[in-house]
């Protein structure tokens, strides 16, 4: 049987689709293909370029690379976890305990810091924490410190900065889900003999898991790919893998090496998100909805 019905050309669809397709292709797919090609390219002793696995091999041969890589991954997971632990009570307070009138106000309080750029926010922290900063001066004055302490440039400060810069992206998705949680479910669990911890474990967290997962994915990717905060607050001792990419490409001008590192980072984030979704038995479609 022949399908004789001619397909009508949907011009409106084409007009709206072209910019999206161009954007996706020119800015995302095309550069990545180029980087992928680059990452498998190397120049030999005589200056001739050709296919090589050397760029990836370098990563495994040189301990500083894969150690930074593992450190970045573990710290990103850790930061995501800390952000989650802080966000759950905050969202619960905003959606369930605060009066309806103050809910909007509280949400805006969470949002306001994100009206200024990440750079300014990080400098804010630096002003507070540096050796001659506000906190040091205050503690010296009230006599807790005898001499000023350098509070910047260590892992704890860096984690704090990363938690601070990514908090919003966890709170907003969880608020969305938590709002639809019927208060009666919490009361019913309480009535049936559950303790407060059990209510969190059995009712609230399972209910908001889609929100937790979408928040975690965003926060994890933001932290994993962040550059400014680890560089400015972590200092020299706290290497982040994005810095390795930057160093390869800009300092050593080895774009092939940087491209390989970039792809390893992409692989890592995809893998961790995939595992996290499998472990929590969440559907990706459900999470991004």
């Amino acid at each position: 049987m022949k399908n004789s019905k001619p397909h009508k050309i949907r011009w409106s669809f084409i007009i709206f689709f072209i910019p999206v397709a161009l954007w996706l292709f020119l800015l995302i797919v095309f550069p990545h293909l180029e980087l992928l090609k680059m990452s498998f390219t190397g120049t030999d002793f005589y200056g001739k370029s050709g296919f090589t696995l050397e760029n990836y091999g370098e990563f495994f041969k040189e301990p500083i690379y894969w150690r930074t890589f593992a450190r970045t991954a573990l710290y990103s997971i850790f930061v995501t976890f800390i952000v989650l632990v802080i966000s759950l009570p905050v969202t619960f307070y905003i959606t369930k305990i605060a009066k309806i009138k103050s809910q909007g106000f509280l949400t805006i309080l969470v949002l306001i810091p994100f009206w200024v750029s990440e750079l300014i926010r990080v400098y804010g922290w630096i002003i507070l924490l540096r050796e001659s900063g506000v906190i040091n001066k205050f503690l010296l004055k009230i006599g807790i410190f005898k001499v000023p302490h350098e509070m910047l440039y260590n892992d704890i400060t860096m984690v704090m900065g990363l938690v601070y810069t990514s908090m919003l992206f966890m709170i907003v998705p969880i608020i969305g889900v938590m709002e639809s949680l019927d208060d009666a479910l919490i009361e019913a669990a309480y009535d049936l003999g559950a303790k407060k911890t059990t209510i969190w474990r059995k009712i609230i967290i399972p209910y908001v898991t889609p929100g937790i997962m979408s928040g975690s994915i965003i926060v994890f990717m933001l932290v994993l790919g962040s550059y400014l905060t680890p560089k400015l607050m972590g200092g020299k001792n706290a290497l982040w893998f994005t810095e390795q990419i930057y160093n390869s490409m800009i300092i050593y001008f080895n774009w092939n090496q940087g491209a390989a590192f970039g792809f390893l980072l992409l692989l890592l984030s995809s893998l961790i998100i995939f595992v996290a979704l499998k472990v929590t038995r969440q559907d990706f479609k459900e999470v991004v909805k």
Partner: peptide, 28 residues
């Protein structure tokens, strides 16, 4: 409420959507 020997059937029933029927009844 979690220690009182009374139980409440809610107006909107408040069955736990994240559990199946068995787990709902077994919850208490």
């Amino acid at each position: 409420p979690n220690k009182r020997p009374v139980n409440l059937v809610f107006q909107n029933l408040a069955l736990f959507p994240m559990m199946n029927v068995f787990e709902n009844i077994a919850f208490g």
